[in-house]
Amino acid sequence: MRERYQVPIGVEIATQWAWRMLVIASAVLLGVFFLRYFSEITVPLAVAVLVTALTINLVDWLEAHRIPRIAATFIVVITLLIAFFGMLAVVGQQLATQATDLRTSVVDGISKIQDWAKTGPLKLSDDQIQTWIDNAKESIQSSDTSLITRVGEVGTTLTHLFAGFFIALFSTFFFLYEGSRIWSWVVALFPRGARERVNSSGHTAWASLTAFVRATVIVALTDAMGIAFGAWALGVPLTFAIGVLVFLGAFIPIIGALLSGMVAVLVALVAQGPWTALFMLLVVIAIQQIESHVLQPFLMGRLVAVHPLAIIFAITAGVVVAGVVGALIAVPLAACLNGVVRHLATVAEQFDDEPPDDGTEPLPGLA
């Protein structure tokens, strides 16, 4: 009788790993697809979770001082709305008052570029410069149809933003008011044997998220105040708007504050010239060095132990999946996953170290 053909053990192990990895990858891709498909819901919910992580302690503090939780929640949410719309109002007022001066600076800058193009090393004639200007005008005029289409897309986007704002607002309110109840309901969806670890993993992820959000807010405020003060000292217009932009950009670690700081450099270049822009660039670099070598290690520490390479990968994946919003959410999600993995690994080690509870005594010398 002929022996049955045997698959080499290496191929068998590789196959078992391969199909498991395929199943995991398929589940991840399916999850990403649903997140993108329902982005009008998932993105506001993610923003609501981040805001809740930032403000939940304030609600708890008000409740501890004998204020009913629903009233404390209303106070915190209304305060957030006042701060948000107040910031928008100040930015709008500054843009309205200083936009004319900035427009004049842009026109002067274009004139200087034209003069440099004629008198500098390019030695362009007036006819050549006018030809380039005419070509630019024709390109703009020929894109009327695409411009109308883009205006329609902007209208749709604004509608989605308006709806997402209210979803995030109501979600934040209920997360602050009865987040524990909601989490208990989520835990109850899992099998009875897994509920304890799901609950402990959720609390670990929440601790990592709150630590990350609070530390990031402090870092963002420091970046915004430093760069805004530097812009004010150098006489750069739109100081408050630059500070707000830097504050929002700082929520994207490593690259966010740098990119938003480059906007300050560009405004300085347009409004004050190259020397002011150079000094503004030095201010941005100095603030970034303070953040990287002092604030990030001191504030983050071991609370959010995510390697910089992992942060870069997370930001890239977030941009691919959901654009700017994905970049904002990617690093907090990576911090939560990192905390959960560490927690489950610790629980598994403790479980392995415990002797089996079978009613027998361990042998001498093996305990």
Rank of each mutant, 00 (worst) to 15 (best):
Q94T: 13
K112F: 15
T52F: 10
L54R: 06
L102D: 03
A25I: 15
A99H: 15
L102R: 09
H65N: 05
F38I: 13
G31I: 03
A46V: 05
L35E: 05
A89P: 04
V28P: 06
H65F: 06
A64G: 10
W61I: 01
A72L: 02
Y37P: 11
R103V: 09
Q98S: 13
Q98A: 12
Q94S: 11
I41E: 10
L80K: 09
P121D: 12
I75V: 14
F38C: 05
L29A: 12
P121E: 14
T97K: 09
F84I: 13
S26Y: 00
L124M: 02
G109Y: 03
L122G: 02
P121L: 09
A14F: 03
T97C: 08
A27W: 00
F34L: 15
V91D: 13
A14T: 00
I75Y: 01
F85L: 07
I75H: 01
G120H: 12
D101M: 08
V106Q: 08
L62S: 04
T73D: 12
V43P: 09
Q114M: 01
G92A: 15
I82S: 15
D60E: 04
K112C: 05
F74I: 07
I24L: 04
L81R: 05
T52S: 09
L50G: 00
K118C: 02
L22I: 11
L29C: 08
V47M: 09
F85K: 06
A96S: 14
I78L: 07
